[in-house]
C-alpha cells in the first residue's frame, strides 16, 4: 500500500502540517466554522485582524458582488487583541492547528503594542502583520504602500516578538518587489500576498457608490491572475518563504500558486461560498498529488518549467 503524500511544509521558522491556511477576515475566529470544518486538519488558521481596542467596523453596506468576485469594506471590525488572547485563542488551541494572529494598528507604536500583546497568547504559532488593509483610513495600507512605512512597522514589531513574523502585502503598489524586500530586510520571516485590490462599485439607478465606505477591496476568482503574477514576481526575486493567496477556489488554483513558488496558500473568499472549501481543497491536494505520483508536496513548490509556454489548449 502506497503511503499518502507528505504535506508538511517549512516556512522559515514556521512549520505547518500542510500548506492550507484560512485567510484572515474570511474565517472569523475559527469556531464559526466548526459545523463545517474539522479545524484540526488545517495547516493554519489566520484569525480576523486584531487591533488594540475593539472596533465596530464600517457602516453598511459593507459587501457587494462583482463579476466573479466580491468587494468588501468591513472596516476591520474585531474584538480587540486582549479579548482574542483571553477567549478566542484558548478555544482554538485544542485543535493542534497553527494559529496565526493577524494584527494591525493606526500608528507604528500601536502595531508594536498589538503584536506584543498577541505574542503573550499561549500557543500562538505566528503573527501576520497587516500592512495592506484598504478599508480604513489608517488601516495599514498607508504603511504597506510606502517602503519607509513598511520598514518602520516591521522593525517595530520585530523588536517585540520572537514569534515567526509574516508580513501581508498589498497589491496596490507600483512595485511589490521593492516593498517585499524592505519587509524582509526589516525582519519578516515570511511574506503573504496578496491582500485585496482596491475597487469601487457604482449603482447606476441611484447614481451612488454602493459601499458606505466608498472604496473597498476586491477578492475572489476575478483577481487570481493578478495575484498569481505578483506571487510569481516576488518568488523569483526573493528567497523568502511566501504564502500565496488571491481567488483560490479549488485545488488547481492552489497548485498554480505553489508552482510559481508559494510554499503555502491561503483560502479566503472561497470560505464564504462553501464553508468547507478549505478541507475540500486539502482533500483535493492529497488526491492530486497521489494522481501525479508526487510523494511530497514540496516537490511542487517553484516547480514551474521555464522552457516555453504550455501548448495544451484543452481547457
Amino acid at each position: 500500500m502506497k503511503a499518502a503524500p507528505r504535506l508538511e511544509v517549512q516556512l522559515g521558522p514556521l512549520k505547518l502540517k500542510n500548506p492550507i491556511i484560512t485567510a484572515s477576515g474570511t474565517f472569523g475566529y475559527g469556531t464559526e466554522f466548526l459545523p463545517f470544518v474539522d479545524l484540526s486538519r488545517l495547516g493554519g488558521i489566520c484569525v480576523k485582524g486584531l487591533s488594540l481596542s475593539p472596533r465596530k467596523g464600517n457602516a453598511p453596506p459593507r459587501t457587494f458582488e462583482t463579476p466573479a468576485g466580491m468587494i468588501n469594506a468591513i472596516g476591520l471590525a474585531n474584538v480587540g487583541v486582549e479579548e482574542f488572547v483571553r477567549s478566542k485563542l484558548p478555544a482554538l488551541r485544542p485543535y493542534g492547528t497553527a494559529i496565526i494572529a493577524n494584527v494591525f494598528g493606526e500608528t507604528v507604536e500601536e502595531y508594536a503594542e498589538v503584536a506584543r500583546i498577541a505574542s503573550t497568547g499561549e500557543g500562538l504559532a505566528a503573527l501576520e502583520i497587516n500592512i495592506s488593509c484598504p478599508n480604513t483610513e489608517r488601516g495599514g495600507m498607508v504603511f504597506g504602500c510606502d517602503p519607509d512605512g513598511t520598514r518602520r512597522v516591521v522593525s517595530a514589531v520585530r523588536k517585540v516578538t520572537s514569534l515567526p513574523l509574516i508580513v501581508k502585502l498589498t497589491p496596490n503598489v507600483t512595485d511589490i518587489v521593492s516593498i517585499a524586500r524592505v519587509a524582509v530586510d526589516a525582519g519578516a520571516d515570511i511574506l503573504s500576498l496578496v491582500n485585496t485590490f482596491l475597487g469601487i462599485a457604482v449603482d447606476v439607478s441611484r447614481r451612488r457608490l454602493v459601499l458606505a465606505n466608498g472604496v473597498g477591496g476586491v477578492s475572489g476568482p476575478a483577481i487570481k491572475p493578478q495575484a498569481l503574477y505578483l506571487v510569481h514576481r516576488v518568488c523569483r526575486e526573493l528567497q523568502v518563504p511566501v504564502i500565496g493567496m488571491g481567488g483560490i477556489m479549488n485545488v488547481s488554483d492552489a497548485l498554480e500558486f505553489m508552482l510559481v513558488g508559494a510554499r503555502a496558500i491561503q483560502i479566503g473568499t472561497a470560505n464564504f461560498i462553501d464553508p468547507a472549501s478549505s478541507v475540500k481543497i486539502l482533500d483535493g491536494l492529497l488526491q492530486a498529488l497521489d494522481h501525479l505520483g508526487i510523494e511530497d508536496v514540496n516537490e511542487m513548490v517553484g516547480a514551474l518549467k521555464t522552457d516555453g509556454p504550455s501548448q495544451d489548449f484543452s481547457t
Binding site: E32, I74, F272
Partner: peptide, 8 residues
C-alpha cells in the same frame, strides 16, 4: 454563517 461580517 457569521464569518464575513458583511451583512450588519
Amino acid at each position: 454563517i457569521g464569518a464575513c461580517l458583511g451583512c450588519v
